[in-house]
């Protein structure tokens, strides 16, 4: 077969395998036993241990966004609209996407490497022969934890990002905390939060799914583990953008209605 055709066939084959893996997750997630202890542990690892990273990137994002936009807004005499504009951009789009990309890098690669390493050192086989369903114990818990934690992390990122923007406004424009808060909140509706929050669930699902899939089926050897982590990050980041596009298109239909 010609190489581009072969690559295309491989792409669809891989997509089909990931879809089957997702289907297996959707089947397994409802059935007992529920590995709650491991789920809470993964929520701690994925959520709590990412707090600092997400807060830092969120803060820098809000601060830089304000600094970069400010001169142009001043030029047009629209400085007073800055908090509202930053509020909407951060909450609707930048906060969730930046958080998801950071998580794809940190969590996707860590899941891919961890499961990949467990696969090549036969720990997954050991789990299976001890009478544990490794798919439920390792995969279901990690995907669920990523789905649950990503919206929480995104909300944190939004809040810290707005704080970063407020600092710039306060230091450069003398905007008080109350004024900044009012300007942001008067322009944000509950309808802005719902799509933002919802798409974070799907981002979390995609990141967890790809990380688990690549790690769970890692090929033998250290090269396989490295490849699992690497591909997990690339694929998860790409899926975040694709899902974001779909989410924005759907949300746009609702905004128009």
């Amino acid at each position: 077969m010609v190489k581009p055709l072969r690559d295309l066939a491989n792409f669809f084959e891989e997509a089909g395998k990931i879809a089957r893996f997702a289907g297996r997750f959707l089947q397994a997630v409802w059935k007992p036993p529920y590995e709650l202890r491991e789920l809470f542990h993964q929520c701690y690892v994925i959520g709590y241990q990412s707090l600092f990273l997400i807060a830092l990137t969120g803060f820098i994002m809000g601060l830089v966004l304000d600094l970069q936009t400010r001169p142009t807004m001043i030029e047009f005499g629209a400085e007073s609209y800055l908090p509202a504009m930053i509020g909407i951009s951060v909450v609707r789009e930048i906060g969730p996407v930046i958080t998801a990309l950071m998580c794809a890098g940190k969590i996707g690669s860590s899941i891919g490497a961890e499961l990949g390493s467990m696969r090549v050192t036969e720990q997954i086989d050991a789990m299976e022969v001890s009478g544990t369903n490794p798919f439920k114990y390792l995969v279901v818990t990690r995907i669920l934890a990523t789905m649950l934690m990503l919206p929480v992390l995104a909300m944190l990122s939004n809040a810290v990002g707005l704080f970063g923007s407020f600092l710039v406004e306060n230091l450069k424009g003398g905007v008080t905390p109350v004024l900044y808060y009012n300007k942001v909140m008067n322009n944000l509706a509950f309808g802005d939060l719902i799509p933002s929050f919802t798409k974070c669930f799907f981002f979390g699902f995609a990141i967890g799914l790809v990380g688990c899939y690549k790690g769970y089926y890692a090929k033998k050897g250290t090269v396989g583990v490295g490849a699992a982590a690497n591909v997990a990050v690339v694929l998860a980041s790409m899926l975040v953008f694709v899902l974001d596009l779909i989410a924005v298109l759907i949300a746009d239909i609702f905004y128009e209605l």
């Binding site: 050991a126 001890s130 544990t132």
Partner: peptide, 26 residues
């Protein structure tokens, strides 16, 4: 499988768990 023990070539201990947790797991 609980009646059939399996000692893997590379030991296959769960490396995120302590020895106690490794034994508790099964």
């Amino acid at each position: 499988r609980s009646d059939v023990g399996f000692l893997f070539q590379g030991s296959a201990l769960y490396d995120s768990m302590t020895v106690r947790e490794n034994l508790q797991f099964p």
